[in-house]
Design a protein around this nucleic acid. Structure first.
Lengths: 207, 207
DNA sequence: CGCAAACTTGACGCCTCCGTCATCTTCTGG
DNA sequence: CCAGAAGATGACGGAGGCGTCAAGTTTGCG
């Protein structure tokens, strides 16, 4: 905030008003991500979020009506991107091997790149699932199921129960990802190798 | 409580004092299981638990010092039993096939038998993991890892990364189990069949 | 420069939670 | 049957959360 203003030649890309608004919103989201990951969504209060910020209580309510809408924004903006990336990677492949490998790899890469969001998700997966029926990585299961269905129809993927395939892939990736992050030197290539081998062989077996 | 007292010939198996204590403790645990599953551990208050009971606030503190110790008791007493069952089933087998199949089957059976606990666990998995380092189904990953390690040494199980094997099995079972419970007529045999096939083939592939 | 609009601030009223404890009720052993 | 122990009860003081809003500050613009 001060450092940015220090250079008088810096042209205001947008009005100062607009820039501050953006900064405040981001500050709130960043603080919330930390708090939710740390003590969990349920235990967190709006005050906890505000405290992670240099804003006043009232200001919070200028940006979000309540705690839940902060979580929603967080999921839409950050986790939503992860979903897109994973899906794009998956759809790039034209073989079972590529479909599986590229999808998992994109997911593990994301976990490492944005650990704050990873922690938010793993800490609050149950709550997120309970709170919304639709969204987030957790219910990205649906997307996987869709893609698997398409793959099965195209003859790309063996014809097992699509729901179960999706569930097992997401569940395994989630848990293996957590394990990977717990290590001192997370190695997404190794994690990808393990889990891809598992599913490629596992799914290739006849129904 | 009234019905039990109605029969004057019913011999007090233990003093009434003792029986009431047992009943109160159970009432608190039952209410807590429901509340935690419903709104999540973090959002739950001691009052919420007490309200699910016909006891007074003060009585709660005669049984547990705080919310956390209720969760601990719940996990020790109920989920602990699940872990034992799964482990016993798994260890009964002398082939990879039996090890995998029986373990998964015991887990899925448990999910169906004790749905209240299942929901408690899936809703609060993240919190439980964050709260304790050691316990519960969630960290039953450790036990699986141990058993897998033993299996690998005995030549029963192919030599992949044990941590990753355990993580992927637990993660996949968790998610597939959730899916199974969501169905109108949960079929543990079908779920077991799917996931066993996946892992038996997937793990049998060379390292 | 100066004023209106936009935004921030934090104190306020209301509410719920926490853990305690004096008091009342129930049980038990003699 | 009774006295004393065991336990249940719920009101209480203290803490902190919620969402609001009057007052103050900053920005944009003519």
């Amino acid at each position: 905030m001060t450092a940015v203003d220090a250079d008088p030649t810096a042209v205001a890309v947008a009005g100062k008003r607009e820039r501050t608004k953006q900064a405040n919103r981001t500050a709130i989201l960043d603080a919330a991500r930390l708090v939710f990951a740390d003590i969990g969504y349920g235990a967190a209060s709006v005050r906890d979020i505000v405290r992670g910020t240099d804003l006043a209580t009232g200001t919070f309510y200028n940006y979000f009506p309540d705690k839940e809408s902060v979580l929603t924004a967080l999921l839409d903006e950050t986790a939503g991107e992860a979903r897109l990336r994973v899906r794009a990677a998956r759809r790039g492949g034209t073989t079972l091997d590529a479909f599986v490998r590229d999808g998992f790899r994109a997911y593990f890469d994301f976990l490492i790149e944005d650990r704050a969001t990873s922690e938010l998700l793993s800490r609050n997966a149950g709550t997120i699932r309970a709170l919304f029926d639709e969204p987030s990585l957790v219910a990205g299961v649906e997307e996987l199921a869709e893609d698997l269905r398409a793959g099965v129809e195209a003859g790309l993927i063996p014809d097992h129960d699509v729901e179960y395939m999706a569930a097992s892939m997401v569940g395994a990736a989630f848990e293996v990802g957590t394990r990977m992050l717990a290590s001192a030197q997370p190695d997404p290539a190794r994690a990808t190798e393990f889990i891809s081998g598992l599913f490629i062989a596992g799914l290739s077996a006849r129904a």
